[in-house]
Design a protein around this nucleic acid. Structure first.
Lengths: 252, 252
DNA sequence: GAGTGGTCTAGACCACACC
DNA sequence: GTGTGGTCTAGACCACTCT
């Protein structure tokens, strides 16, 4: 028998059937054959198409559902997840009010766009987004107000390539979450994100936009959003005013 | 046929078999029949015991495993999860250094206990822990140092009942994570936790213990830890110095 | 080799949504 | 009623661990 290499133990990489099915299905999603909000073929049809049992397809769908790429609905079918669903308006925003909304108090959520410009990506942004230094990027600044008071100041960086044609008008004219616009207008779907959270002191710009004194402690949330294949497609630096709100997290 | 009550739509509460099995297994865990670190009976044995198919037991175990109550190990068996596992020393601590450890730089993790006293629980603590106002609680204060520098100042509140006999000596003499001590010495297992995160300015005590100027922005992390049945058993107020560390979170 | 969890199958039946 | 996902079963075989 052949002697295996000492430091490279071959790794035949046994891959279960359902993982292969899952990969095939992910391709359909990534290629846009199955579009956000629409239903995918039924389990029995997929089983026939892939020539495996329904149980195997089922396990593949199970995993895609726990990864929030698909949504099962009993009696109706399995659907491609979308950021457009009304219920979870801001799927990635973990900020919530300390006290539940009082009767008829305050307004809802308001967005105000401060700035939107195309420029060369700074070195750190380029590195995070996987761009070459000097590549173009779009910078967006905006303020989110909850119940009438400004609470979030976001600085958003997007690679110019996939987001060609993104303008301030396009942004401010759009109703609904930003990620929904990205999904429907630019075909970019945010799948998951990683956040790094710190406490910082408000600088002049943030203080003015959030209506606090310079030096006020703010939550700094740096979010890197990823699409299929863990490809980074957005870097978002948020400053949250946490006097009456908090960032909520569940550990398990 | 009997007319159902108008506002109480009966809710026959259909419960799948595997959920019932899961509930039975959770009881065994809660009662301590299956102890942390030990293995539970094999799938086939449980199937025979509960008089269901192996697949049904399997689905129950699957859910308990995704909830981190059980750990599967192929070829060996299924084990009760424990905080004692070496790898994940601080399962609930999401803080991590901005830069990976340099070669041979700095020390490891150090704990320093500042205080440990028994007293009446303040109103807010009592409410969070589900105690009656005036009930006794144990307050622990400690500082965590990473790589030689103080980074975390924790104020921990525990209900006096389950933690009878907890003293400063017991704490400082123990090697290993606190949650491991709680588990092995007091039979209290933290299953999951909820955190509320804010940015605050360092007060005098925190500033001194963390070696920063008063007013320095700190991350305030209020953690409520829960055991079986979502019963709260710990309230922990942490202040993190985030100059060289950050709180890491994954969204999906 | 014996025992464990992991995969895969085929078929039956149940709960739910829509017509 | 028809079609969808959800549950449950019984059995076969595979991969891993330990003896």
């Amino acid at each position: 028998m052949p002697a295996p290499a000492a430091t490279a133990p071959a790794a035949p990489a046994f891959s279960p059937l359902y993982q292969q099915i899952k990969a095939l299905m992910t391709r359909e999603l990534q290629a846009g054959v199955w579009r956000p909000g629409e239903s995918i073929p039924s389990e029995t049809e997929l089983a026939a198409r892939f020539k495996v049992s329904q149980g195997t397809v089922r396990k593949a769908i199970d995993e895609l559902a726990t990864e929030n790429l698909l949504v099962r609905r009993q009696g109706k079918g399995t659907f491609v997840a979308t950021h457009a669903e009304q219920q979870i308006q801001f799927r990635f925003l973990r900020l919530q009010p300390d006290e539940p909304a009082a009767e008829g108090a305050g307004g809802g959520t308001m967005r105000r766009f401060i700035d939107c410009r195309r420029m060369r990506a700074p070195a750190d942004v380029a590195r995070a987004l996987g761009l070459r230094s000097g590549d173009a990027a779009v910078q967006v600044k905006r303020v989110l107000s909850l119940r009438g008071a400004p609470v979030v100041f976001d600085e958003i960086w997007l690679p110019a390539g996939p987001f060609k044609g993104l303008t301030a008008e396009r942004l401010s004219g759009y109703r609904g979450p930003m990620y929904q616009l990205f999904e429907s207008e630019f075909g970019v779907r945010m799948i998951r994100a990683e956040e790094k959270i710190r406490a910082v002191a408000a600088d002049g710009e943030a203080a003015e936009l959030l209506g606090v004194a310079p030096g006020t402690p703010l939550l700094s949330v740096e979010r890197l959003s990823l699409t299929y294949g863990d490809k980074p497609v957005e870097l978002r630096r948020g400053l949250y005013h946490t006097a009456a709100h908090h960032y909520r997290n569940e550990l398990s």
